[in-house]
């Protein structure tokens, strides 16, 4: 392709405005956190992030988010499949509802789930009779993370499934694969990059989640139900700024690594689809 001079006007202006707004509103405030965190001595930093409460909160956030993202991957594939491949009454409503966790404020989701799954709630009461406690346990926390993460997975898979060429399936069918084999060996491997993206987004969101989990989790240090965001907020409320920034730095590093992985997968995916 020939690379000519771009004739569309406005490069300098839009470049300047974009960089200026991005820097002032996002990057400089974030950099302040980094600058402050790097002012801490390594010993101080290490001491803060390796206290039992902090380690437990990371363990809780990471494990629960991982489980929730895994559950969402399974249901996400099913939901995306149903929405793309089948026609049935109410499909459009179902499709619209997927986005609810994006549209519903996290605090509203948080108090509602907490109430529903408490021992006096609609779902919690019958389960409590069976001896299963949900609110204020890790199970409750994971349920809140499933709620918040489901649209990420469905919306990552849906477009790929829509574009998926039926030639592959036909080929697999002609070669003698049955439906199950076709799905697990052909379709699922085509969906893998999208699934990884969706999983990664749901996982990343889960690790940083605050509003929807803090009510249902119970935030008990003893029961290990404190999430990382809760701990940062707690330190902020006690004006322990060095503690808050140290934990935030670790969390930022995790987010950036996840973001990087997702980006690499996405770039590869778009290259692949472009080749097809």
């Amino acid at each position: 392709m020939k690379k000519g001079k771009n004739v569309i006007p406005g490069f300098g202006l839009t470049f300047g405005i974009t960089i200026a707004m991005l820097s002032l509103l996002i990057l400089i405030p974030l950099a302040s956190v980094l600058v402050y965190a790097f002012k801490l001595s390594p010993a101080e930093f290490w001491k803060t992030v390796t206290t039992e409460a902090v380690l437990n909160s990371f363990k809780t956030s990471i494990i629960c988010s991982f489980i929730a993202a895994s559950i969402n991957s399974v249901f996400g594939v099913i939901l995306a499949w149903v929405l793309v491949r089948y026609d049935f009454p109410g499909k459009r409503i179902l499709d619209g509802l997927i986005e609810l966790p994006f549209a519903l404020p996290t605090a509203v989701a948080g108090i509602t789930l907490s109430k529903m799954y408490s021992t006096t709630g609609e779902i919690g009461r019958p389960l409590a009779k069976l001896g299963l406690k949900i609110s204020y346990t890790h199970i409750g926390l994971t349920i809140a993370l499933v709620f918040i993460g489901i649209p990420f997975v469905v919306r990552a898979i849906q477009p790929v499934l829509e574009k998926l060429d039926s030639q592959y399936e036909e080929a697999a069918y002609i070669l003698g694969a049955n439906k199950r084999q076709t799905f697990f060996k052909v379709i699922l491997s085509e969906l893998r990059p999208a699934l990884i993206t969706g999983f990664g987004l749901a996982f990343a969101r889960g690790i940083g989640e605050y509003g929807s989990v803090i009510y249902i989790s119970g935030n008990s240090a003893k029961e290990h139900t404190q999430v990382v965001s809760y701990l940062i907020m707690q330190k902020l409320n006690y004006m322990d700024y060095s503690g808050a920034t140290a934990i935030a730095l670790v969390m930022l590093i995790i987010s950036f690594v996840l973001l990087l992985v997702i980006n690499i997968v996405q770039v590869r995916q778009s290259r692949r689809t472009n080749l097809i």
Binding site: L22, I26, P29, L30, S32, A204, I232, A248, L252, F256
Partner: peptide
């Protein structure tokens, strides 16, 4: 640049709050 614009998506909102406290708060530059 595109990735940086999307940064707020992948950051815990609590950290966003912290960022402004560390910028404009008592200890902020």
């Amino acid at each position: 640049l595109a990735t940086l614009i999307d940064v707020p998506f992948s950051i815990s909102p609590v950290i966003a709050g912290l960022a402004f406290i560390m910028t404009f708060g008592r200890l902020g530059w």
